[in-house]
Design a protein around this nucleic acid. Sequence first.
DNA 1: GATGAATGAGAGTTCATTCAT
DNA 2: CATGAATGAACTCTCATTCAT
Lengths: 206, 206, 206, 206
Amino acid sequence: MTEKNRRNPSQPRAQATVEAIEQATFQILEAEGLAKLTTNRIAERAGVSIGTLYQYFADRDAILAALGQQQAEKIRQKITDILLDAPHSDSVRVIVQTVMQGLEGSPETNSILSDALIRKQGQAVLTRHHLAFLDSISGRAEYDFALGRESAFILTHVVTCLLRAANAQPGLALSREALEDELVLLMHSYLIALDARAKKQASGGA
Amino acid sequence: MTEKNRRNPSQPRAQATVEAIEQATFQILEAEGLAKLTTNRIAERAGVSIGTLYQYFADRDAILAALGQQQAEKIRQKITDILLDAPHSDSVRVIVQTVMQGLEGSPETNSILSDALIRKQGQAVLTRHHLAFLDSISGRAEYDFALGRESAFILTHVVTCLLRAANAQPGLALSREALEDELVLLMHSYLIALDARAKKQASGGA
Amino acid sequence: MTEKNRRNPSQPRAQATVEAIEQATFQILEAEGLAKLTTNRIAERAGVSIGTLYQYFADRDAILAALGQQQAEKIRQKITDILLDAPHSDSVRVIVQTVMQGLEGSPETNSILSDALIRKQGQAVLTRHHLAFLDSISGRAEYDFALGRESAFILTHVVTCLLRAANAQPGLALSREALEDELVLLMHSYLIALDARAKKQASGGA
Amino acid sequence: MTEKNRRNPSQPRAQATVEAIEQATFQILEAEGLAKLTTNRIAERAGVSIGTLYQYFADRDAILAALGQQQAEKIRQKITDILLDAPHSDSVRVIVQTVMQGLEGSPETNSILSDALIRKQGQAVLTRHHLAFLDSISGRAEYDFALGRESAFILTHVVTCLLRAANAQPGLALSREALEDELVLLMHSYLIALDARAKKQASGGA
DNA sequence: GATGAATGAGAGTTCATTCAT
DNA sequence: CATGAATGAACTCTCATTCAT
């Protein structure tokens, strides 16, 4: 591994420092955007020296990736929690709602964070993300059929993709509620179509 | 606005210069990515001096935006052409195919170009893009009903969004053909669902 | 080649800039030593911006190497000139004198410059230096015998090496004149010993 | 002076710590060079904290100087031992051999260490070195005459200087044995020349 | 119109050193 | 005595942009 050893904080003081850096990064990102997100600014806002920052993060992107990681983890957790709590709820709507609400911070911030995560960790992360998502849907009685890779990809990405696009254009003034309904409709109808095709192929193949 | 009047190239020589700059930009973007796309490099590759470059483009982003503009225009034109030539074809598939084939350059290049276009010209561009897209679909017998803004947004963005996402992850090795079929299925099923809802509301409202 | 293209100055203004940078480097080196020789300081002293500096030199070492090159060239030229002008003079003394006088700048400066030159261009440079030196000595009637590689190395390096060492210790207060005499004596006696050994071997081998 | 009192390690544990630091420094120097020799790295490799390191050494250079000291001491001791054991051996050859073999570590490491020693302790060290060296030669029957300062300087530095230079250019592939012979010849012929001159002056002066 | 030398703010990053625990 | 988190001055180097020629 050519990765440099960056201290991983054991002492509580260090832990606090790391959190301060992450928070500062998030705030600057929200308030001023990626262009103004410099490591010096982050350190200043976090109330630590620039040297301290570099003791915990190899470079600027590492901070973003860490935040992206945390964000992804939160959403995954939320979906799981809800489905465990209310196993009979409409899982598609649950997922859509969670993704829509779950992303703290502006959409721009979010896309920056996930981009950073992908850049650092490669596609492996997304594949895990992907699979966790599918787990939430499949295994449920309603949609019990084999998914092609492409279908699975679409199911796990439509919502996030469209939300990102919608958020990128605040001028369109799309309604959150209406968008939610449309996304649920989109996914439902696609799932039904997949189901229909699966059955047809099954009977046709017999 | 600090925008300066940049020469509007009417003379053929000037036109050639502008094209050289645009081509150089595109090539560098493809070959080396945004990080290595410096204005000096562009000028060098285009065979003009950096000063000349700045006589035709206000700044680096202006070049990207111009390329983005051209790219969007091309796709729009292609769709229109095909639908005029073969008015009875499956317009959804035509659109999907066009978008899939139409984007010359790597997906990264494309997202950079459209980002630049949006940044420069704001949402106005996208709305025009948007409307052109919708024009291709509506007015056709099959899907003749009023679209909510959110539905319209989804229809005009799903394909592009998902393609971009798919392209960003070459590791998944998704099949182009299968993806095309799935996207067509996705849009068809959504349009049918919209149609069904519209009819239901119409009869329910009566 | 992975070397970045650095402009090589064609316009007179550029030429002046390059010279200013080289002079500034030399002066700082003399006055404050390598530790304080930063690129910013050089640029400042040269009266150019740091960006300009980096348009002509890839990095700090490139400046030092350039200076080292020039210095080596000067000495080589001087020795050649003197021997051409006065072919019957004591070539050993000429060389010793030239090396002693020829190095402008403090000995520290000089060793820094030659080190930089070697680092950049590898041993090839030194070998050329080496050969040029030997040319000055051999071919002369007095010392006409084959030199082993090790003997040649010693002949071409003693003077420089010892001068560098002497200069590094100003506290010893060695006299320049006495040192010159001693170095000439050292080289003469070594050459005579080499000659004697060569003759002995020749007769022994017969 | 800003020098702080650093602990003088009398306890065995402290002694072990100091040695660990010195060894770590030597190893890093050999393996990765001066550029990668950071105090943090040294402490890590020595298995002590950076704070502990600074309890025994005032700064980074102090570690290098200590190593340089030890290295110089070892060589001096070796020469003395050999000459005491075999008082009739060719002392010039003994010295040359000892210096050639005695330098553990790469030539680069060695020049770094002696440089550090000189920087820290000034010329006093070298003068002692110098004198110790001369003691080995003079007082011996063969070369019993007064040395001028410059001659003494040359005698005590030629070997080290030339070896350092030779080592700095591994590309020349000089033979160790041949080099030894040449160095012995060089010193012998110089000593003979000095002797001859001394006698001539003595008789001329009478 | 074209040129390209010059600009310089500011980015990311390092590392010897300190000092509270 | 040992620790290691924190420091921050200082560094090298980039690149969009200007403007005298």
